[in-house]
């Protein structure tokens, strides 16, 4: 598409390319990269104690903090919890979001009033997580909270159930809150992805007589891969950083069962003995875990994705040439 014209212009244009990224780069360097490296460096120091500014690089074994963190049972538990809670929330979340996307974008059996449903489903996401955590804490409170009240009124239980002391129940509730706040968001992102797929492809499929289910699995999902990847990666990163809900719902308890890596890091760095160095080491380990997870995901999805994109582009080009209607879709 690019014409010779733009290539001629590109020399003078390059200047503006650099100019326009200056704010991003400057702020990034100062407020993001520098703190990142600062954190990294702190992991190798003896920096602990409230607002300690007089710290030194460790002498001897420079990886002491990292070794201590790796052996720290609470840290191990917190990483495990983070992953378990994320999976417990993400699988139902993405499944439900996909189902709703399929329904709301179905071209044959349309759902009436879907605007209202979308608004309602997305709503929990807009509400402050802190409010939600405390609200759910109140809802599940023992012995006289709304949920216990409901269970007893419906004769599902004789006495109250102490949700706050049961480890599985606490994990499940935190995962549920996450699921409940985020499925609407995921749904909206997926719908926008589906709407982005060229209608010509669907028309071609219609001509071939594909049914709704076939269209969804053979056309929608393959074409949605970029968006799915985006959702998966952002949700994974968000999930690995889960903080507000577990922190405010039960402060990581009971018995560390809802303590996530972020809560652990916060507790190490900003309460108790202010072990900044250990917390920094934990942060960096989490960072590595996140980086590896993301890299694997990108790698797994990259090739097929690129192929799909190329296919899509080809298709689009043909559509642009107004020959799509005669094209068959396999």
């Amino acid at each position: 598409m690019k014409s010779a014209q733009s290539r001629i212009k590109s020399i003078s244009n390059a200047k503006y390319g650099y100019l326009f990224i200056i704010p991003f780069v400057v702020v990034y360097l100062i407020f993001h990269l520098y703190p990142t490296i600062y954190t990294m460096v702190l992991g190798f120091t003896d920096c602990k104690g409230l607002n300690n500014t007089n710290w030194h690089l460790l002498k001897g074994n420079i990886f002491t903090n990292f070794q201590q963190i790796l052996q720290n049972k609470s840290f191990q538990t917190s990483v495990k919890n983070t992953i378990v809670i994320w999976i417990m929330n993400f699988i139902p979340q993405i499944s439900l979001a996909m189902l709703l996307t399929a329904w709301f974008t179905a071209r044959r059996i349309t759902v009436k009033g879907q605007g209202i449903f979308k608004v309602i489903f997305y709503m929990p996401n807009i509400i402050t997580a802190a409010t939600i955590a405390i609200l759910f804490h109140a809802l599940f409170s023992y012995p006289t909270g709304p949920v216990n009240d409901l269970l007893q009124r419906l004769n599902l239980r004789d006495g109250s159930y102490n949700f706050f002391i049961s480890k599985p129940a606490s994990k499940l509730i935190v995962a549920f809150i996450q699921f409940w706040t985020w499925y609407g968001y995921t749904m909206i992102i997926l719908i926008s992805g589906v709407l982005g797929i060229s209608p010509d492809i669907y028309e071609a499929a219609d001509i071939d007589g594909a049914n709704g289910v076939q269209i969804f699995f053979k056309i929608t999902i393959p074409n949605l891969k970029t968006i799915l990847l985006y959702t998966l990666v952002t949700s994974l990163i968000g999930g690995l950083n889960m903080f507000d809900i577990p922190k405010l719902y039960l402060n990581g308890g009971p018995d560390n069962s809802t303590k996530t890596a972020s809560v652990f890091i916060y507790e190490q760095a900003f309460s108790g003995k202010y072990l900044y160095n250990r917390a920094s080491a934990a942060s960096m380990l989490m960072f590595i875990v996140i980086a590896i997870c993301s890299a694997i995901l990108f790698y797994l999805m990259r090739d097929k994705d690129a192929a799909a994109l190329a296919k899509l582009k080809k298709q689009e080009r043909k559509a642009a040439a107004k020959r799509a209607s005669t094209q068959t879709w396999r």
């Binding site: 049972k73 009971p254 018995d255 072990l275």
Partner: peptide, 30 residues
């Protein structure tokens, strides 16, 4: 108190509660 509650509610043995308590303090406060 967290560990004691785990023990009294029958989710843990007495020894496990004490061990986990020690571990928690060591993890959190060094």
């Amino acid at each position: 108190r967290d560990q004691v509650r785990q023990y009294t509610s029958g989710q843990k043995t007495r020894d496990a509660a004490i061990d986990d308590f020690k571990q928690a303090v060591s993890d959190k406060l060094a």
